[in-house]
Design a protein around this nucleic acid. Structure first.
Length: 573
DNA sequence: GCCGTTTTCGGCCCGACTGTTTTCAGTCG
């Protein structure tokens, strides 16, 4: 996918910021923000959708915004956006990215102090000028300076894999506090989004003050941003991530968990549905509007049930059609970690892995896996200890021996480089001898879109290629997906029966969720592989399964959730 | 600016926390 969608989303968000500073109707502002989110989470290029004339079928895009998108596709800019920017000093919208500074404060700072950049604001605050403004004091001035520092320390969303372990540690510490009756991580971590802005935790308790006291006193808390009896926020030491704790009575726990799990758009749809039914949903429960009687709240299941819906797994609460299916009780049975029967993407000391094939096989068996496929790098990947053809023969014998001894079926495969021309890095007779072949791109990323797409599709057309490994080469938060025609790749996957990998390494999560959904909708098959380079990495399967679930994938569509016999049949086809 | 088994006009989420007030505005989620 090219960068168009993200660029349009960015422009819509900036328009929203500028309109907010101009004190325009909040509904108009929200419309732009909602549209930005909708565009951001699309699995297709806007250009493709526009060509089909279906822009207005995107929820939140109407006449006016569809025209603006078309204008952007035609000219690379949106005149309305340019006008707004011209009418306001550059940097004013930037001020709003500072925590503590909203539209009102930004405008006030500009009008009274002529401040229109973060640097200028910092200077004014240091000079004690901010505290002289109406409704501003020394404390606010300090908070603004702290907000600037916080923004600089941690600007972007962090990868899920970098945050989840810390969230689990906090959750574990809170479980030990007396008075905590139930607890869950909520927010985008619970939805298993690939990047995370903050940690949300919900607790059920009848002693919220004591729980909050313990929370802000945690050794992990670097600073306390706020503290109350229902909500407190801290910033975590080292990680720099904000962690919010919400406490509710046990009777409201399910409603609070639902509410704080989001997504925002999912909750908006849920509340709209409630209104139609004469109900009201809040973090305290589901209420009948007329009588104010509480109908549900203790569990999430109750909350969805009160709205006439099947319980919806957190990973698909993204306003992508899940409510309609939940109403018909027709949600997909999403793949679970327990469905996974083996790992098909594993490295060992034969190439760049840290542990031997035997150690990896033992660790896989320990996880209860039926099978494991060793897939070290192919010969061209010299820097990763690529395996020579002679060594492969020895490995085949070693792997058979392991299967006999360890009681887990160990297959021999290879993660074969897809060379720049789309050919594979071993000759056909060598590929033929392997149980399974993953094809991956590790070099020459920056090809023109058409050429790169041809390269990948040519590799998929090889009768020996079973799995396309980390198909778009993206690295979470670091490298955007390759400039591939993803629709063409998905179509080729279906045609050639090539399995698409959902690489579970938290650095990759590739395919990403929206691409998984696209491929899933067109009937592709998936393999969830951890790309483990050491035994501990088998645990990454959680991230891969989470990503698969976000793409609505069922166990039947995942080849490594199949029993060994079926998998072998498939590979031998 | 979007949207419609309440509506093509009139809705669209609001509660918690902080800081600066002297009863509440602004921000955030």
């Amino acid at each position: 996918m090219d960068a168009t969608n993200l660029e349009v989303a960015r422009i819509f968000n900036e328009i929203a910021d500028l309109l907010e500073i101009k004190q325009e109707s909040t509904f108009r502002v929200n419309a732009y923000r909602r549209a930005a989110r909708a565009v951001e989470s699309l699995s297709e290029d806007l250009r493709t959708i526009a060509q089909r004339g279906e822009l207005r079928r995107i929820g939140g895009i109407g006449q006016s915004l569809a025209e603006k998108i078309e204008e952007y596709l035609r000219t690379g800019a949106i005149a309305y956006h340019e006008e707004l920017r011209a009418a306001m000093p550059r940097g004013l919208a930037e001020l709003m990215t500072i925590p503590e500074v909203g539209p009102k404060t930004a405008l006030l700072l500009y009008e009274r102090l002529g401040v229109s950049s973060v640097a200028a604001l910092e200077e004014a605050a240091r000079a004690g000028k901010v505290r002289q403004l109406p409704r501003m004091g020394a404390k606010t001035e300090q908070n603004i300076l702290a907000g600037i520092a916080r923004m600089r320390a941690q600007s972007a969303r962090q990868p899920l894999g970098a945050v989840l372990p810390h969230a689990q540690a906090i959750a574990g510490a809170l479980r030990g506090i007396s008075g905590v009756e139930a607890l869950s991580i909520a927010g985008s971590i619970r939805r298993m989004r690939d990047t995370i802005a903050d940690i949300d935790i919900v607790v059920a308790t009848r002693r919220s003050d004591a729980v909050m006291d313990a929370f802000v006193a945690l050794p992990q808390a670097e600073t306390v941003l706020s503290k109350g009896s229902t909500r407190s926020s801290i910033v975590l030491r080292h990680v720099g991530v904000q962690c919010d704790l919400r406490a509710v009575e046990p009777d409201s726990y399910g409603a609070a968990l639902q509410y704080f799990t989001g997504s925002k758009d999912h909750n908006v749809q849920l509340r709209e549905r409630a209104v139609r039914l004469g109900l009201r949903v809040s973090e305290y429960g589901v209420f009948r509007v007329r009588t104010d009687r509480r109908l549900a709240g203790r569990t999430e299941e109750d909350v969805y049930e009160a709205l006439g819906l099947q319980w919806i797994p957190p990973e698909i609460r993204e306003a992508q059609g899940e409510l309609e299916l939940a109403e018909r009780r027709a949600l997909p049975a999403l793949v679970r970690v327990g469905d996974i029967r083996g790992d098909l993407h594993v490295h060992t000391t034969w190439s760049d892995g840290a542990h031997t094939a035997e150690a990896m096989a033992r660790a896989a068996r320990q996880r209860g896996y039926e099978y494991l496929c060793i897939t070290d790098h192919s010969r061209s990947l010299k820097f990763a200890g690529g395996v020579t053809i002679e060594d492969l023969r020895a490995h085949a014998r070693a792997v058979r021996h392991l299967s006999d001894r360890l009681g887990i079926r160990v297959l021999l495969g290879s993660e074969v480089d897809i060379l720049p021309d789309g050919s594979l890095d071993y000759p056909d007779e060598v590929l033929e001898s392997l149980d399974l072949v993953i094809g991956s791109i590790h070099s020459r990323f920056r090809m023109p879109r058409a050429e790169l797409t041809r390269r990948v599709i040519r590799a998929m057309e090889s009768p020996h290629l079973d799995i396309l490994g980390h198909p778009t080469g993206r690295l979470v938060g670091q490298r955007e997906p390759l400039d591939l025609d993803i629709d063409a790749v998905v179509e080729a996957a279906r045609r050639t029966e090539t399995v698409l990998e959902i690489n579970a390494s938290p650095e990759r999560l590739d395919l990403k969720d929206t691409h998984v959904r696209l491929a899933r909708d067109s009937g592709a098959l998936f393999s969830i592989g951890t790309d483990a380079h050491r035994t501990e990495h088998f645990a990454y399967i959680d991230y891969g399964v989470g990503t698969a679930r976000r793409g609505w994938v069922e166990a039947t569509q995942v080849v490594n959730a199949w029993p060994l016999a079926r998998l072998l049949d498939f590979l031998a086809r």
